[in-house]
């Protein structure tokens, strides 16, 4: 495990998706906002109440320069909270299936789809998955999304229960690698998750080929909030 990942385990780590939610955008702007508005990325270390401990910037690289300095900042910050820190229990989920497939595709990670027959069933299943998601074997291996039965998505309709999905390269759909039924016990659930993660495999993709193929196929991502990053040319927003 690299040092950044290892040091991150003492934190609650959050990666909101820029331009995807108006309310969340206010938090992003609090963390870091350029002269033209939200930029594609923003970064800061925050206290447990959400207040900035460091100046906001566009990235850890801009804040710290070298990885070693970033790791040191993570360690020294974590040390101040270590005495009172409790274990993380909540399942780290993404907002919806459309975004979750996109993010998992971009990270080249499996997406675990937790689907219950209703809100309460989905929440109960998510709690079971959460216990495994933070285990030594599975932490940091996958992304998660929780759905209720009526929700559907073109290209992917996992059954009730827990499905480990291999997203397609553009996150438009995916293939189910492993599945556990809603009433699966902890052992069966753990097996489905570990089997799915073990089967997950993607070919490295060239950035330019990825963009070119999307253009050819007419694939386009539309964000609810206009892209305001001054580094992005108008034609690409």
């Amino acid at each position: 495990m690299n040092e950044v990942v290892e040091a991150s385990r003492a934190f609650v780590c959050v990666r909101p998706q820029t331009y995807e939610d108006a309310e969340e955008a206010k938090v992003l702007a609090y963390v870091f906002e350029g002269r033209s508005g939200l930029e594609n990325t923003s970064f800061a270390l925050l206290d447990p109440e959400g207040k900035k401990l460091t100046a906001g910037s566009r990235s850890p690289t801009m804040a710290y320069g070298a990885v070693e300095r970033f790791v040191e900042a993570l360690k020294s910050t974590a040390a101040k909270y270590a005495d009172d820190a409790k274990s993380i229990d909540a399942l780290p989920t993404l907002r919806d299936l459309r975004l979750a497939l996109n993010v998992a595709a971009a990270d080249m990670r499996p997406l675990v789809v937790v689907r219950g027959k209703d809100k309460d069933a989905a929440a109960a299943l998510a709690r079971k998955v959460a216990k495994l998601a933070w285990s030594k074997e599975l932490v940091g291996t996958s992304h998660y999304v929780v759905l209720q039965a009526p929700e559907t998505f073109e290209g992917l309709a996992p059954e009730l229960g827990v499905s480990v999905v291999l997203p397609d390269p553009y996150g438009l759909g995916g293939k189910v690698l492993a599945h556990a039924k809603p009433d699966a016990d902890a052992k069966a659930l753990a097996k489905a998750l570990t089997d799915g993660v073990a089967q997950h495999s993607v070919e490295p993709r060239e950035h330019d080929d990825h963009i070119r193929e999307a253009r050819r196929r007419g694939i386009e991502w539309k964000s609810p909030i206009p892209v305001s990053d001054p580094h992005v040319p108008e034609r690409d927003r």
């Binding site: 998706q17 970064f43 101040k80 820190a85 409790k86 991502w221 927003r237």
Partner: peptide, 20 residues
């Protein structure tokens, strides 16, 4: 949990293309 937060936002698109 009283843990500090590592915050990093990012846009899951490049040139309006998802999956990157």
């Amino acid at each position: 949990t009283q843990r500090p937060i590592l915050f990093m936002s990012a846009a899951p698109q490049c040139q309006r293309v998802p999956g990157v």
